[in-house]
Design a protein around this nucleic acid. Structure first.
Lengths: 273, 273
DNA sequence: TCGATTTTGTGAACGCATTCACAAGTGGCT
DNA sequence: AGCCACTTGTGAATGCGTTCACAAAATCGA
C-alpha cells in the first residue's frame, strides 16, 4: 500500500502539513538493518552498522516536532542562551512540555535534571537525528509560478539542503537562469540525479504532470519527494512522499471558520479579540 | 496532519468558540451552541444558528481527508463518472476504504449499499461540510518571493476562495500590481478586512515580521490564518493557525532518507545518524 | 552534609484514529 | 419471488500519540 497524505493534521495530516502523516518504509527497513546479514554476499559491500537503538523508534509525530525544536533552538543559540528547560522550549515551540520531554527522550537522555538542556548539545543531537549533518541535494522540477518562487526561497537552502538543479518540461524555459541555476529539461533527470547525487525531488508542476515526473524521479532512484501539485502520487514501497497542498489548507480553515459563532452581518464587531 | 499549532494546548475556554490549531474546540462548541444563551445580554447580537447535528462531530483528521476526497471526486465528475464505490475512491485518494467509509459516515449516510456513492451528491455534501458554498475572501500579507507566487497561484482561487487583497510593509512594493491586484500597505489592514470581509489571512512575510502581522490580523477580527513564515505564531484562543514550513518538510524527508539502506552511494556510514 | 528546590525522564492513563470484520441493505438476474 | 453478488455502515479491536503525575537526579545554600 502506497498511500500518502499530510496530515496536515495532517499531519499532519498531517499535517499533514502540514499535515499529517507520511508513510515511510515501514518496519521492514528497521528489521533489515538490525539483521546483520550483508546486503550482498560479496565482502566488499559495507555492512550495515547497528543503528543506534535510541533513534530506532523515533515516532513520526516526534520527527516533525524535532524540526520545530531545532529552529527554536537555533534562535536561542544565536541569542547566546546556553541552557533551556523543557518548559521554556515547549512554550516557544507551542507544545506541551511533557510531550517535548518525551520527544527528546527518544534521542537519549541529554538533559540535566534540575537544570535543563544544553542548547548546543541539543542542536547537534537533533541535527544528527534528522540527518542534517551532510547537505542533501535537491532537484526542483517545474519552474512555473510556484517553482520559480521556491527556487529563490531562502528557507530552502537555510539548513541542510541546497537546490542543485532546476528542471522543466517546457522548452521555452530551458536555459533560463534562476537563482544562479540554469533550467534543464526534465528528460535529463537521470544525468542530473547522478551528477549531483540528488536525494530529494521537489515537484512543483501542474497536477496533470506530477505523476509522470514522480515516476521519472523514482526511476532515477530518488526515494524522497516533496509534492506541491494538487494530486495524489502513487509510489512504490520505500519511497517517501510528503505533500503540501494550499487548497486543502484553506479548506480546513474554511471548515473551522464555518462553525465559528459570528453574529452575522459581515464583519464581526466583537470577534475574538 | 501536517501538524501545526501555534495555539497553546490549553483547553476549552467556555464562552468562546475556540479551535486552536490542530484541535478544535471539543464538546464546548456543541454545548455553546445548544445552550440558547446569547453571547452578550444585549438583544442586538444575533443568536447562533443551529448547526446541523451531523457535522458536529467531524474529527480533525477526517476534515483534512475530506478535502482530498473532494478533489478526487471533482475529477471523477468531470469524467462523467456517476457512481463510485468506497474502494475505488479510497484507492484514488490513497487511503484505506474502511477509513473512507467512516469518514463519510460522519456526514451522514449518503451511500447506497451494493452500489456505492453518487459522485454529485457526495461533492455537494462535502462542500457543504467544509463550508465551501460561499467564497471566502483571503488577504495575503507579504508579496516577496513566495507571496508573489502565491498571489498568482491558481490553486488558491480554484474552489471556494478568492484573494481579495495583497499587502506588504515595504513602501517600495506598495502600489505594485500583481495578478490584477494593487499591493496596499499592511497598516491598511483594518480597512481592507472590513471592505472585503476577509475571512482568512495568509502570512508570507519573513519570519521576523510574521508575529506582528499575525497580531494585526487578529486585531482586525481575522480568526483563520495560514502561515508560511518559519516561526511559531502565538494567537489567542479561538484563532486557527495552520502552518506550511518548507524547511520542516525537507527535514522530515531527510530523517527518513538517512535511514534508508543504500548499498552504493557516497558514504552511508553515518553514525548515530 | 543535608534539606529545599528545580527539572528531567518515564510508567500509566487517556483519548483519538485506523483497521478489521461482518450484519444489513441493495440491485440484478432468473 | 428468490437467490446471489456486491457494498455500505459500524461495533469492536488495535495502535498511536498526548498528557498526567511522580520518582529520580542535580544544584544551591547554609
Amino acid at each position: 500500500m502506497t498511500d500518502q497524505h499530510a496530515a496536515t493534521p495532517d499531519d499532519v495530516v498531517p499535517g499533514e502539513s502540514s499535515a499529517g502523516g507520511v508513510r515511510r518504509a515501514r518496519a521492514a527497513i528497521g528489521r533489515a538493518v538490525r539483521s546483520t546479514l550483508p546486503t550482498r554476499s560479496g565482502g566488499d559491500v559495507r555492512e550495515v552498522r547497528e543503528v543506534r537503538p535510541a533513534s530506532r523508534a523515533v515516532p513520526e509525530a516526534t520527527v516533525a516536532r524535532l524540526a520545530v525544536y531545532l529552529r527554536v533552538l537555533s534562535v536561542l543559540a544565536e541569542q547566546g542562551v546556553v541552557t533551556v528547560s523543557s518548559e521554556e522550549l515547549a512554550t516557544a515551540a507551542g507544545v506541551n512540555s511533557a510531550n517535548l520531554r518525551k520527544d527528546l527522550s527518544h534521542l537519549g537522555s541529554y538533559g540535566t535534571r534540575g537544570v535543563g538542556y544544553d542548547v548546543a548539545v541539543l542542536v547537534e543531537r537533533i541535527e544528527n537525528t534528522l540527518g542534517l549533518t551532510r547537505r542533501l541535494a535537491v532537484a526542483l522540477v517545474g519552474v512555473g509560478n510556484l517553482g520559480h518562487a521556491l527556487a529563490g526561497y531562502g528557507g530552502f537552502t537555510t539548513r541542510g539542503f541546497h537546490i542543485a538543479a532546476l528542471l522543466d518540461a517546457d522548452p521555452k524555459r530551458i536555459g533560463e537562469k534562476i537563482a544562479g541555476l540554469v533550467v534543464r529539461h526534465v528528460d535529463e533527470l537521470p544525468e542530473v540525479v547522478a551528477e549531483f547525487d540528488i536525494a530529494i525531488g521537489v515537484i512543483a508542476t501542474p497536477a496533470h504532470a506530477a505523476q509522470a515526473v514522480c515516476d521519472q524521479l523514482v526511476d532515477c532512484g530518488v526515494t524522497s519527494i516533496l509534492n506541491f501539485a494538487p494530486t495524489v502520487l502513487v509510489v512504490p514501497d520505500g519511497v517517501d512522499v510528503r505533500k503540501v497542498d494550499l487548497a486543502i489548507e484553506l479548506q480546513i480553515l474554511s471548515f473551522h471558520e464555518q462553525r465559528k459563532i459570528r453574529p452575522i452581518g459581515g464583519n464581526a464587531l466583537e470577534g475574538v479579540g
